Amino acid sequence: MEYKKIGIVGAGTMGRGIAADLLFHGMSCILVDISNDVLERAKAEIIRIIRFAPLANASLPKLNAEDAISRIKFTTNIEEISDAEFIIENIPEKWDMKETVYRELSKVCKSEVNFAVNTSCISVTKVASVTDRPDKVIGIHFMNPSYLKNCVEVIRGYHTSEECIDNVKALLGQLNKDVVLVNDYPGFVTNRISHLFMNEAAFVVQDGVAKPAEVDEIFKKCYGHKMGPLETADLIGLDTVANSLDILYESYQDPKFRCCPLLRKMVDANLLGRKTGKGFYQY
């Protein structure tokens, strides 16, 4: 099957990047959020991505921004996603919000439509349990920014069918992305490990061992990482990192996932990273 119209729930950082990625690969989408202000900011950001991303990745086509953005329907009405062929959900890592959204999606989407959970840490199986189609629910953990990353972590829930996996591979194939298929446990592979890096890096700064730039420099120059753990945290959003750590701590009851107090303090101060202009770094 070749997909043409994708439904995206959540117009934050990930939703915008995925929407742009779809446009670069010839698809259209319906972008849903509860806030018109967020949708307006998303539109402006997607236009910026369309104009400048090909400079960073020469394999991306140069698109006319106005023509491309016309292939996105921006809406606050989730019922307008009903004719989408595939759903990708990107809302915050809060279970009560996830549960509400998936119950609504079950009501408005066609029975054959697959649901992709773009979650950092919440169990895909748990999400599937509140839908009317647990065999059609799967995790797709897109890396940020989606349009510059050619590999994704795909998470098989307990009930996820082989047909659903094949459908996801077909969609991601259209986006020219490689798939690494893993099983469902909170945090999966990427975030179960990467959040330990980010959290411990915050502890290192809190304890006065090193400054943020020094921590990140060690990871980039000694380990060859493209970004350090604190730069990565700022990119993701410190609120998202803290929420994910809370989910990991609750899921495993393991103290290694205890959120660093400095990280919590920065979230309370609205120092969330790139999204607010200041986190461990000034933007």
Rank of each mutant, 00 (worst) to 15 (best):
V113F: 03
V241A: 06
K220M: 07
E231R: 01
K265Y: 04
T119W: 07
G273V: 08
E93K: 09
G10V: 07
I34M: 10
K4G: 06
Y252K: 03
P261Q: 11
G157D: 04
A242K: 12
I6A: 01
K43M: 00
G237M: 05
N36V: 04
F203E: 13
D67K: 14
L175Q: 01
Y158D: 12
C29I: 00
S146M: 12
K220I: 03
D268L: 09
K107T: 11
V130R: 03
F142T: 00
L230F: 02
F74P: 02
F197E: 06
D135Q: 14
G139S: 12
A170E: 13
K220W: 01
R133F: 12
T232M: 14
S59R: 13
G139R: 05
K220G: 03
V267A: 11
M143I: 10
N64G: 12
A65K: 04
G17N: 06
I165G: 02
F188Y: 15
V154E: 04
S28I: 06
L248A: 04
N191T: 11
S194K: 08
K278G: 07
T131E: 03
E80N: 08
V241I: 13
A128E: 04
D37E: 15
T75R: 01
S82A: 15
Q206S: 14
F52G: 01
K4Q: 15
C222K: 14
D21E: 12
A58Q: 14
T276C: 10
A213G: 07
V9M: 02
F203I: 09
P134G: 06
N270P: 04
S161V: 12
F197Y: 15
P134L: 05
K265E: 15
A233W: 03
S244L: 08
V108F: 12
E2R: 14
V137Y: 01
Y252Q: 04
R264T: 15
G273N: 07
L175W: 05
G237A: 12
A233G: 15
H225W: 14
E93H: 05
R41H: 13
C259S: 14
G273T: 06
E163A: 14
A202F: 03
N167R: 15
G173W: 12
D254H: 10
D254I: 11
I155F: 10
V189C: 11
I8N: 03
I47G: 02
C109T: 13
L60P: 02
K110R: 15
N191H: 13
L235I: 08
H25C: 08
A56I: 11
Y158W: 09
M27C: 08
R192D: 12
A65P: 03
K94C: 09
K136R: 15
E104S: 06
L31C: 02
V101W: 02
Y223G: 01
K177H: 11
T76D: 01
H25A: 08
N191V: 10
R274L: 14
R103N: 05
F280R: 00
R103E: 10
C222I: 05
C121F: 06
T240E: 10
D33V: 07
K265C: 07
S106C: 05
